[in-house]
Design a protein around this nucleic acid. Structure first.
Lengths: 177, 177
DNA sequence: ACAACCATGTAAGTAGTTACATGATTTA
DNA sequence: TAAATCATGTAACTACTTACATGGTTGT
């Protein structure tokens, strides 16, 4: 159950409406926790039922902006959840399944897709590096900036890993047909 | 929709019962696609309905072993799916959320968990390297061995990535309290 | 007034998880 | 013959996805 706590964090950083949150989940937060606006609206409703957030303005039906703000009990719940230890989930990647399938049934054109993915990982890596150069030109000194940098570092190293693996894979797969 | 195709591949490699498959999903396949026995039994039923696999023996109720085998149409479906191109899913990791939460609300003991994870990633890396030394002492020459090696390489590089990141993270987080 | 967009929502379906149930076979 | 374990399954639930609906605001 991570999405509610992702939302609490985002709302602590800045009180927002559902659509604002959806937009933030499309870039920064969404780089390591994706969510659609449907999920977000539903979850905001639950957070409000729980008494962890309040929504300020209209109450008057649809189409009007509702800004949510975290209440003290929500902050406490977030602290509780953050301190819980959790095991890392094993890698889960369809591409590995497809390669194993190709090993079983013979050539199926997976290497074309590896090439495509290599390009995608390279672009994302370039973007992350730009962000790093812009936001962290020198090593940050405050705790929260250091932590934000760590998260970005994970993204960078993740993309590097896939770029390296894809290059290795292409060398193997791109043998003379 | 990956699990059915993971099962087709596993059954092509070797005709198996549900429990055999569950056991294989606990080590080799499960390293990149986890599944419980409940999922597997349900999915085997669907594969049989579709006419992609057949189950051989008993038909006589519960508690008896049913061995499944892939039919030609199942093999064709697997080939079709394998050739489909698919985008990589972005990283999704609760730990990043918890670090971001800690940046927002102050120290919550996440670094203890990073240390724990570092140990886990190191052990898994050691295991993968043993498997590599055992199964691929020299670069494989047949296509399917090469592909199997590539999958293992992804696992190794994935664990390396997390080990490196965790070490970096601990250096930052383990500052004097 | 109409189009385009902003904002919130409903409905239906799929995938995965957790807890439990039950029949068959082995072994002490 | 009772306990342990093998093997298959049911039921209920949660998270996520996809498609669509509807009201409000802004610009021409």
């Amino acid at each position: 159950m991570s999405l509610p706590h992702a939302l609490l964090t985002a709302l602590l950083e800045e009180a927002s409406s559902g659509l604002d949150l959806a937009r933030r989940f499309d870039h920064s937060i969404g780089n390591f926790w994706h969510a659609t606006h449907q999920q977000i609206y539903r979850e905001l409703g639950r957070l409000e039922e729980q008494g962890w957030v309040e929504s300020l303005p209209p109450e008057t039906g649809r189409g009007r902006k509702r800004v949510y703000r975290v209440l003290p009990s929500g902050r406490a719940e977030l602290a509780r959840w953050t301190a819980e230890s959790q095991d890392p989930k094993p890698m889960r990647d369809e591409l590995m399944l497809r390669i194993r399938a190709e090993a079983a049934i013979g050539p199926a054109g997976v290497s074309d897709d590896v090439r495509r993915r290599l390009d995608m990982h390279r672009s994302k890596l370039a973007i992350y590096r730009q962000v790093e150069a812009r936001d962290f030109p020198v090593p940050p000194t405050t705790r929260d900036k250091q932590l934000q940098h760590l998260i970005l570092r994970a993204g960078i190293m993740h993309e590097q890993f896939w770029v390296e693996w894809s290059e290795e894979a292409l060398q193997v797969m791109a043998k003379p047909a």
